[in-house]
Design a protein around this nucleic acid. Structure first.
Lengths: 302, 302
DNA sequence: TCAAAAGTGTTCTGATTACACCCATGT
DNA sequence: ACATGGGTGTAATCAGAACACTTTTGA
């Protein structure tokens, strides 16, 4: 059978387009979800001068888009991440999304832990490159009347919105939340990650029971970092120093020490928590669904 | 702040790539999932001569990729579908996936109902363009030893594999199953769609209870097509002809009438079923999960 | 009367949620 | 002693699954 041809294009010389990979770098600090943005230049023929934008660049000749995203992170952001931490979140192809030329963008999301990239996050904060995701998407916290969003370049607010939803699903179905934590963490730290990304207030007790039931997700470690399958719930004989990676209260550190709810999780108060690390499996069985996805009646956790 | 540049590309003249939209046309006939494929030509400089491939073409200048997919369906397949029925299922960007040039493909999936496109399906079957998805992906049914898959061109078997998984999730979370049925259908017809796409054998009684509980998914209609909110379960007073769109046993119609399990659903045997139509809402609350996604223990429905 | 298909009822299991309560530690 | 945060127990509610059973038709 002869192949039907669309008659519009020569298959030996089809039209070519500009392709970019844009990267949404997300992190949780101080109980909030932050994104790394750059500010566009003020050149005369630059579109969206002075606007906030996601880092991105054009795909190379012999390069997968995932590698392009890694290159963007290395060259334009200053981050080195594993390929497995990057997740494709969307394709953006409206013909007029870039006023200069026809540009199709593929968006990637990466979650970085405050602990693993402490110096980067401090530097980005000092340069004003960290923005609260909820304020960019929904507007300010008390913006019932006035929308105080700062507008982003191109359709990057759409990319950010879909990236946040993508990450919320990732936290339901995979162990992506561990990318936002140090190698050893407590269940409270893990719950605060889910609270921040889902914009939830999960019940601490119920969270412990749900998350420890998922097989292959997390495993308890002794204070010195050795995993123990049957580690006792109350470490009575432990007097050694706990090898805990603490969170730094880098934001809101204006010495008003008791208004930021979940600023410094490990300040040696109350019963000492157990410590956990990743148990290896990337997919959660069963998934850890957001509040309200099971029951249809209204709940207080939603 | 000066914008960092990757130094590899001129932002005013970035490298350009060929972009295509490939379409995975799926339908359920005779209890199986089928895909529409084309066979590549035997030209000397054609890659993958004679291989099976998904229909696709290059994106136009002022055209979204979704519109490209619609154009492919109209010009190369001979189908006219609504834009809402098309769903993006993946991006394929390996540098060497097309031996001719660097080509990045975006895949779309569309589900067509046997009833709505009966002449098209008959024509496609006569031209040998319909293939069973499970045989292309997994091999033949009894291929424990011999893999009798016919190889597909490019990475189209990967596209097809991810498209099937995409559709399986679509049937969990949206009313996409209704795209595979006529406007008025029975619960048995709907269950056979889920059985075919999920490769499941859902319990008929449990399926009825689950699916009728989902608010806004389907609503019962009287035999003449008028919806009734409180339609009685047993239509005692009905003697009029039922306006039912019946399935045609177009495949396996070799007169061995009792071996193809779910060939012709409406053959006037047993208790007459109720009839339903779409209730409008695209997203299902709660979703209709596949067997085994809730319980962790092994089940017989899986 | 019998088979076949549609639909209901019942029971068991298990997940979600709410909330009370206990445990361990610093001040 | 007391506050604070970590963690367990328990009960109510609801969903998934298995399966027996009833209903309604054609043969």
């Amino acid at each position: 059978m002869s192949e039907m041809q669309s008659a519009a294009f020569d298959p030996l010389d089809p039209p070519k387009r500009a392709i970019t990979a844009d990267v949404v770098v997300l992190t949780v600090v101080d109980g909030n979800l932050w994104v790394v943005l750059q500010r566009r230049g003020d050149g005369a023929d630059e579109p969206f001068p002075g606007r906030l934008s996601l880092p991105g660049t054009f795909v190379g000749d012999e390069e997968e888009l995932l590698e392009t995203a890694q290159r963007v992170l290395r060259d334009k952001v200053g981050l080195t991440v594993d390929a497995r931490q990057l997740s494709r979140s969307g394709v953006y192809d409206l013909p007029d999304r870039d006023p200069r030329m026809r540009t199709i963008s593929v968006a990637f999301v990466v979650l970085i832990a405050e602990h693993d990239h402490r110096t980067f996050i401090d530097t980005a904060r000092d340069h004003g490159q960290l923005y609260q995701v909820s304020k960019l998407i929904d507007g300010g916290e008390d913006s019932q009347i006035i929308d105080q969003r700062e507008p982003m370049a191109f359709d990057h607010v759409d990319i950010l919105t879909e990236a946040r939803e993508h990450v919320r699903v990732l936290l339901e179905e995979t162990d992506a939340a561990l990318d936002l934590l140090p190698p050893v963490f407590t269940l409270t730290q893990l719950r605060e990650i889910y609270d921040a990304v889902w914009d939830a207030s999960l019940n601490p007790g119920n969270f412990i029971k749900r998350v420890t039931r998922i097989d292959g997700f997390i495993e308890q470690v002794s204070p010195d970092g050795i995993s123990e399958a049957e580690f006792p719930s109350s470490p009575i004989e432990s007097d050694a120093a706990w090898m805990v990676y603490e969170s730094v209260p880098s934001f809101n550190s204006v010495s008003t020490s008791d208004h930021a709810g979940s600023g410094a999780p490990s300040r040696r108060l109350g019963r000492p928590p157990r410590h956990f690390r990743s148990a290896g499996s990337a997919k959660l069985h069963p998934p850890l669904r957001r509040p309200g996805s099971y029951f249809s009646r209204p709940t207080s956790q939603e």
